[in-house]
Amino acid sequence: MATTTHEAAGHAADAAAAAPGMPQLDFSTWGNQIFWLIVTLVVIYLILSRVALPRVGSVLADRAGAIANDIAAAEDLKQKAKEAEAAYDKALADARVEAANIVAATKAEIQADLAEATARADAEISAKVAEGEKAIAEIRAGALEAAEVVAKDAAAEIVAAFGFTAAPDAIDSAVTEKLKG
């Protein structure tokens, strides 16, 4: 190391002699620097142009492609979502129309059933009314007959109460005559 420092100091002195304080102007080192710089630049150029730049370029291109693909896919999905929404809206509208149709049909059906049932009920009611009237007439007829029997019985009792005896036929005919009266 001692020789190195001596050497360096000597060079510094040389440089100082040539141009005070400017090692840059010590031309004895220029050849060395230029040679090694050319070597350095060639090495850097070869490494960059053969290995690094194609690699970085392909990575960037790959990423740009991936991003473009993703954007396209997103656009596609958006389109699909729009279509699905339209289909959904259409289905909803169709369902509404159908529901309205069903409601109307059902209403008409119910109306028809109701009319039929009403008619049937009316017929039944009138039949029942007729039956009832017939029964009432019968009852009324029965009642007249019963009244005649009661009247004849009552007349026979009354006659007996007055102490007479009368033939039942005579009482019957008399009561029948009075009732007709």
């Binding site: 050497e7 090692p23 060395n32």
Partner: peptide, 16 residues
Amino acid sequence: FIVKPLFGGEGVHWYT
């Protein structure tokens, strides 16, 4: 800024 040989030797040649 002084350019000096790294491993000693006689001055700075183009290959130093």
